[in-house]
Structure formats: structure tokens, C-alpha cells
Amino acid sequence: MKDHDLAHARPWLLASLFFGISYVFVEQTAMLGGLSILWKGAGVALLLPYALRWRAVRMRALIGLMLGFYAGGDVVLEFDLVNGAFLFVCGHIAAIIYFWLNRRTAPTPSQRLLAIVIPFAALTIGWFLAPTLGDEAGLLVYVGFVSLMAGTAWYSRFPRYRTGIGALLFLASDLFLLAREGGLLADAIAAWLVWPLYYVGVFMMTTGIVQRSRATAIDGKQEAAL
């Protein structure tokens, strides 16, 4: 990507950081009323133009669907829990497809093992949390999708310590959310865990994808020049 393209992309990233980081304080103080819902959606929504501006990023339609559904889910959850969760499941499906299509060509045994362990561990935790919420089947289905997203992200060619850990933070956020809804986690504690882990997770996933895509494109150009 050329320097002027980089300059055009960075403001979207900075704007996303502003809305994403500040939302936890906006939510706590309730100072914006109904506008806080749009503030919430802006954090992830602004990652969309940032990610899609990079020419090196392949399969941008799937990235757009993933981030678009996540941002939409952030807003809709404020009105309807079921439809909001449905949008997140759609985002997870797009992410699972994207990460699987970009899986590692030569993963180590530990990478394979962790990609399998993540869904099983998450479903086990979800099994204990679900009875407290009264919708075991629906919650386990959702946990299955978000955990598969995290597992495929870890198995993908993208940086494990950015995209992989970001996906695990996303998963942890949802598990803390379930614990809060089931009365196992105090609202005051959950307020400082659920949103920050989720937003930072999506942020790390997105920037990890961009980072590896740019590096691959640069390496390809250097090889072609030899």
C-alpha cells in the first residue's frame, strides 16, 4: 500500500479507537442517552473502512460481512437480544469461513491441538453457565459458533498473538456476558470486562489480518523483483 493510502486508512483506525475505548465510560455514565447506542456501534463499524481500504487484504467481502454483522449486532442487542445474537452468529460464520480459507499450510501439533481444545473448553464452560439462564440449547449453539471462530482464528495464517488472541478475548467477553446474565458475575465487574474484551478482541483480529496481508503482499513484490 502506498503512503498516501496509509494516511487515508489511519484516521478510520484512530476514530474506531476513540469510540471503542470511550464507550465503556459513555455506558457507565449514561450521559448521551439514546445516542450511546450509535456510539457503541461506531467502534467496530469504523474498522470496516479501515480494513477494506487495504488492497493487500484478500476476500474483503468476508471481512466486510464479519465486521458489518458484529457492528450491527452491537446496536441491535440494545433492543432485541435474540436478533442481536443472530447477527453475531452471522458474523461468526463469515469469520469462520474467512479464517478457514486462510488456514496455515503447515501448522504445528500444538496449534492443531489448541484449535480443537478451544471449542471444547468453551462449550464445557457454556454447559455450566447455560442452566442459570434457562436456554441451554440456544446458548450452547451460540457458544459453539463463537468458539469455532476463535479456534479457526488461532489456526489461521494470521498472527496468533494478535488475531488469535483477539479472537480468544472475544470468546472470553461472551463467556463473561453469560456469567453476568446468569447472576454469577456482578454487573459492576462485568461492565469493565465484557465491552473492553470484545472491542479489543475485534480490534486485534482486524489489525492482525491487515498486518499479515500487508507483509505477505510486500514479500510477494520483493520475490517478484528478484
Results as ranks from 00 to 15, higher is better:
211 Q>H: 13
202 V>S: 00
191 A>E: 06
181 E>I: 10
179 A>P: 10
195 W>Y: 09
184 L>D: 01
188 A>P: 00
209 I>Y: 02
195 W>R: 03
185 L>H: 10
183 G>T: 12
201 G>V: 11
179 A>E: 04
183 G>M: 09
203 F>T: 08
210 V>R: 04
210 V>G: 04
203 F>G: 03
209 I>H: 03
196 P>H: 11
192 W>R: 15
192 W>E: 11
207 T>V: 15
197 L>C: 12
191 A>C: 00
191 A>L: 15
206 T>Y: 07
178 L>E: 13
187 D>P: 12
188 A>S: 15
202 V>D: 04
202 V>Y: 00
189 I>C: 00
186 A>V: 05
192 W>V: 13
194 V>G: 03
181 E>Q: 12
206 T>S: 08
207 T>S: 07
182 G>F: 03
196 P>V: 12
198 Y>V: 12
185 L>K: 11
210 V>Q: 05
198 Y>N: 12
187 D>L: 09
195 W>F: 15
187 D>H: 07
182 G>I: 06
181 E>L: 14
182 G>Q: 07
192 W>L: 14
178 L>P: 00
196 P>S: 09
196 P>D: 11
179 A>H: 09
188 A>D: 15
198 Y>Q: 11
187 D>N: 11
204 M>C: 09
210 V>T: 08
199 Y>A: 01
178 L>W: 01
197 L>S: 15
189 I>G: 00
207 T>N: 12
180 R>K: 14
